[in-house]
Design a protein around this nucleic acid. Sequence first.
DNA 1: GTCCAGTTGACAGCCAGTTGCAAAACAAAG
DNA 2: CTTTGTTTTGCAACTGGCTGTCAACTGGAC
Lengths: 143, 143
Amino acid sequence: MVRRTPKRLDYEKELRRQGVRITRQRSVILAILSETEDHPDALEIFRRASAEDPSISLSTVYRTMKLLGDMGAIHRHAFEGGPSRFEHAGGEHHDHLIDIETGDVIEFKSERIEQLQDEIAKALGYDIVHHRLELYGRKRRAG
Amino acid sequence: MVRRTPKRLDYEKELRRQGVRITRQRSVILAILSETEDHPDALEIFRRASAEDPSISLSTVYRTMKLLGDMGAIHRHAFEGGPSRFEHAGGEHHDHLIDIETGDVIEFKSERIEQLQDEIAKALGYDIVHHRLELYGRKRRAG
DNA sequence: GTCCAGTTGACAGCCAGTTGCAAAACAAAG
DNA sequence: CTTTGTTTTGCAACTGGCTGTCAACTGGAC
């Protein structure tokens, strides 16, 4: 059962409920985030937002990403050798496989790995607050 | 069977063999790296190097870390929310648990997780080139 | 010792991201 | 719809971590 991306208005309603002002700029950015399935960086979000409202500044994009991140509405991923990339939160937890040739990101999930991580941390006397698991790979050529 | 940290001269000999000039500065930095068991960042290495030779510049530390990284003599880790931290290569592969309160780094290894990662990548049609697994946690208070 | 490509320190430049500030805009109250 | 007070914005300046430039210096082959 696939969870569908929340719509723009769901985001806005939820943020308003938390006392966040919905400005024209934030609305545009939220729309972009809720409609995409990829993992754009701040500059890419800025480009897409600019197409819709040329007056939006890159600062505002950065500030909005920070705000949304702090509120838990989006996740920020600092993959190797590039700027942070974002995705809307709300789906299930997952990790990432990054295509080192194209930069494409594939999401995956392994209950078993999560479980092993917990066991390892426990054995070392720690509670995991969060983790980062990224696989960097190259598409296997058939043949 | 624990592999012992290679000594400074081992490093130097190996680098010389690969055609790298061993300067006074590099020698000092290599000594620091081969004698530490922690994961210092460039500034910390600079501080330790300065104590031994005040004329060493931070630029040289950065350049040397890049050089040694490219040669495979050290590993660079970009943990969350901080500068890159380094460790000498030469031990077995391992992953890291980072204490989010102290910044301490604990190394661990899980054959099983590595294996699961390979399986996941394979299932997605990829060959893993490298990966990053970091657990961020807090020491469990005995209660 | 001589020589010169490789290396250095100083410092400018770069990149992703943050911040200070005056002007503009949201939204609550009237 | 207007007023009001706080938030947010665009802009430009700034930051931190790191890389590039360049004249002076130096390791190490001869």
